[in-house]
Amino acid sequence: EDYYQILGVPRNASQKEIKKAYYQLAKKYHPDTNKDDPKAKEKFSQLAEAYEVLSDEVKRKQYDA
C-alpha cells in the first residue's frame, strides 16, 4: 500500500504536512482510544510505518525511487 495514501498527503508533501497528518491520524486510530475496533491497531501500525519512512529524508528518497 502507498505510504502517501495511508497518511493522506500528496507525494510532494512537506515534512511539516507529513508530521501533521501523522499526528492527526495517530490520535484518531490509537489503540487506546479504539479498544473495541480490532482494525485500529493494524491501521495505527501502518501509519507508524508510513511515517517512519516518509519522515526520514533518506528513507523517503529510497521509497520514492
Rank of each mutant, 00 (worst) to 15 (best):
E1N: 11
E1F: 15
D2R: 03
Y3H: 04
Y3L: 10
Y3T: 01
Y4A: 01
Y4S: 00
Y4M: 00
Q5E: 12
Q5V: 11
Q5P: 01
I6H: 03
I6F: 05
L7T: 01
L7N: 00
G8M: 05
V9N: 00
P10Q: 12
P10E: 13
P10I: 03
R11E: 05
R11G: 05
R11P: 07
R11S: 05
N12Y: 08
A13C: 07
A13Y: 01
A13V: 04
Q15L: 14
Q15G: 10
K16N: 15
K16L: 15
K16P: 08
K16C: 11
K16R: 12
E17P: 01
E17Q: 11
E17V: 07
I18D: 00
I18S: 00
I18G: 00
K19R: 14
K19W: 12
K19N: 09
K20V: 14
K20P: 01
K20R: 14
A21Q: 06
A21C: 05
Y22Q: 01
Y22C: 02
Y23R: 13
Q24E: 15
Q24K: 12
Q24W: 13
Q24V: 11
L25H: 05
L25P: 01
A26V: 13
A26C: 10
A26L: 14
K27W: 05
Y29N: 06
Y29E: 04
Y29A: 07
H30K: 06
H30W: 12
H30F: 11
H30M: 08
P31R: 06
P31Y: 07
P31F: 06
P31K: 10
D32V: 07
D32N: 09
D32E: 11
D32L: 08
T33G: 14
T33R: 12
T33A: 12
N34G: 08
N34H: 13
N34K: 08
N34Q: 08
D36Q: 09
D36K: 10
D37F: 06
D37Y: 08
D37G: 05
D37W: 07
D37V: 06
P38R: 07
P38K: 07
K39A: 14
K39R: 14
A40W: 10
A40E: 04
K41Q: 13
E42A: 12
E42R: 10
E42C: 10
K43H: 10
K43P: 03
K43F: 13
S45C: 10
Q46V: 12
Q46K: 13
L47Q: 03
L47C: 06
L47H: 02
A48N: 12
E49Y: 06
E49K: 12
E49A: 12
E49D: 08
A50M: 03
A50N: 00
A50Q: 00
A50T: 02
Y51T: 01
Y51D: 01
E52Q: 09
E52D: 14
E52Y: 09
V53A: 03
V53N: 04
L54Q: 00
L54H: 00
L54D: 00
S55R: 07
S55D: 04
D56L: 02
D56N: 06
D56G: 02
D56P: 01
D56S: 04
K59D: 02
K59S: 06
R60F: 01
R60M: 01
R60Q: 01
K61E: 11
K61P: 03
K61S: 05
Q62M: 09
Y63D: 03
Y63W: 02
D64P: 03
D64V: 01
D64L: 02
D64Y: 01
A65K: 12
A65G: 10
